[in-house]
Design a protein around this nucleic acid. Structure first.
Lengths: 134, 134
DNA sequence: ATACACGTAACTTTTGCAGTTGCATTAGTC
DNA sequence: GACTAATGCAACTGCAAAAGTTACGTGTAT
């Protein structure tokens, strides 16, 4: 796998689940389909569960299922659940030290913040149920 | 240094150069100011030279200088010169294999492409000479 | 009791990038 | 011409983030 693999994995999995929302899927099934590892799947889907997009059940016949109707889960929900910040960087780089650098950071991070917002907004316009046929 | 360090380095350096466009600076000077290594500086500035933003001269009293007036170099010029693609990914991931994945990629990469465009557009609104005082 | 699935921690492997070293090339200066 | 100071470039090292892997504890249906 490559960069953005967590997001890819999450979106791919949820899009599939949108197809048959009532079917319970195990992390092994999902990993198999996505060509990765059950533990990686659980790590990623765990964040989606924290965000209330999925539920998981332990034990025999356990697995993963959508927590809401597919129409009510947007691509932005998934993106935000993983707090990836594809564009902007959360980290406040320590002590600019140089006034030019300071001014620059202010300017650039402003732009990036706007872009980040508009990315989320655009992703919010599509639900995982819309992706399938498209 | 951290993520996006190439872009940071490039922008920081050019912003300084915008202050005294006629002064020739060596990669050692620049590296010193930026807290990094001359070779790294040459690597990054080399791309800016390829893009026509800078010129370099070898030999005694050589170094780096802006190739154009500071007002004519936008942040987008710098960004594009490094072909970083902060948002979108150039790589066409091989053989979707699964129709849902295919549809998803199409949708998501479409959004990312739009966002990338608008990032460039926004960066294009500021020149390196405007950053200093701001 | 057993089998199955998640939850999680610890470790290994991979990968991208900064950092580093070394050397050839070029261009002024003596 | 010899010397010095700069870029250009290739090859290697070091490091950190993320995926992948292994192992084991916990919960649950049969």
């Amino acid at each position: 796998m490559k960069r953005n693999s967590r997001l890819s994995l999450a979106l791919h999995t949820l899009s599939h689940m949108a197809g048959e929302p009532d079917r319970m899927q195990t992390s092994a099934d999902i990993a198999d389909h996505a060509g990765t590892n059950p533990v990686v799947v659980r790590r990623v889907l765990g964040k989606l569960r924290e965000a209330g997009l999925l539920t998981s059940e332990k034990g025999h016949a356990g697995g993963w299922r959508l927590a809401r109707k597919p129409q009510d889960i947007s691509l932005a929900d998934v993106y935000l659940a993983l707090d990836e910040r594809l564009v902007a960087s959360d980290e406040i780089s320590d002590a600019p030290a140089c006034s030019v650098e300071h001014a620059l950071q202010k300017r650039v991070s402003g732009v990036l913040e706007e872009i980040e917002q508009s990315l989320v907004q655009k992703l919010g316009e599509t639900s995982i149920s819309e992706v399938r046929g498209a």
